[in-house]
Simulated assay, not measured.
Amino acid sequence: MTTSKHIYFAAPLFAQSDLFYNQHLVEKIRKIDTELTVYLPQENAGINDKTAYADSKMIALADTDEVLKSDLMIALLDGLTIDAGVASEIGVAYAKGIPVIALYTDSRQQGADNLKKLKALQTPAENQFHYLNLYTVGLIKLNGSIVSTEDALLEQIKLFLEGSDLHDL
């Protein structure tokens, strides 16, 4: 499959664990098709070498330019909240009609049919589930999809590259 598609990979990149996971997942995405270009911001030393200097405008211009060149955005939603930079990048993608496939692996989303967990929602401070900002989630769902596993993410990328509409997946 020759695609010549450009993917923007939006993810937190400040902890060593983030950097390793991002690289791990991008390597899997790049193996889908050798013609695929994946922009991983942490690989852009011009703005993300934290021993050097890049001001806010340099970072905003560089990453926004890459978002706007993209045919698809992959966004990682895991963490205490959706990373602020990721949320901003999702907003740019939505405004420009660039589809987003988001990965949300938080284990607290499991058990949605567990009656004890559901009943606990009636007790203050006993929410057994994780909350994501619904505005950002809505922007993704209006122009893409959210999956909960790496395999589902890779499958949706393949389907997108084959021409499938993310709204139908």
Rank of each mutant, 00 (worst) to 15 (best):
D151S: 15
D168R: 14
I98C: 07
G111S: 10
A125P: 08
D151V: 15
S4W: 00
Y94D: 07
L36S: 00
T136P: 03
F14S: 07
Y104K: 12
K69C: 08
E27S: 13
F160G: 01
V38F: 03
G91E: 01
P124T: 09
L118G: 00
E126M: 07
D106F: 03
K116I: 11
L13V: 09
L115W: 08
L72T: 01
T51H: 12
T123G: 08
F9A: 12
T123S: 12
K141Y: 04
L159S: 00
N48L: 09
L121T: 14
V137M: 10
V86G: 06
I7C: 02
T2I: 11
K141D: 13
T37W: 08
L166I: 06
H167D: 04
V147L: 07
I29D: 05
D55Y: 06
L36E: 00
A52W: 05
A62I: 12
Q42L: 10
L103Y: 07
E162T: 08
T81I: 07
A152M: 15
I29L: 07
D168K: 14
N48F: 12
K96P: 09
V137T: 12
G46W: 03
A54P: 03
A93G: 05
G111N: 03
T149A: 14
A10G: 03
Q16M: 11
E89N: 03
A112E: 15
L19H: 05
M73Q: 04
T123N: 08
F160E: 06
T34L: 13
E43R: 06
Q122A: 15
Q42I: 13
H167L: 15
I74C: 02
N22A: 05
E89Q: 06
A95R: 07
H167E: 12
L19V: 09
M73T: 02
E150L: 08
D83Y: 00
D33I: 02
F14M: 11
I29W: 02
Q23W: 06
D113L: 13
G138E: 03
L121I: 10
E35P: 07
T149F: 11
F20T: 14
Q42N: 07
H6S: 09
L166E: 01
S145F: 00
A10E: 02
L142C: 11
N143C: 13
L36V: 03
K158D: 02
K28D: 07
A75P: 03
L103W: 10
I140K: 03
H24N: 15
E162R: 14
A54Y: 07
D83A: 01
G79Q: 02
N22S: 06
S56I: 15
S164I: 09
Y21K: 11
Q122Y: 10
G91V: 04
L139R: 04
L25I: 01
L132F: 07
T34A: 10
Q23V: 12
K5H: 12
T136G: 04
N22E: 01
L134V: 09
I90H: 03
T149Y: 11
N48I: 05
L154F: 10
H6R: 08
K28F: 12
I82H: 00
I7W: 02
Y131Q: 14
D71W: 02
L40E: 12
K50S: 05
T3K: 00
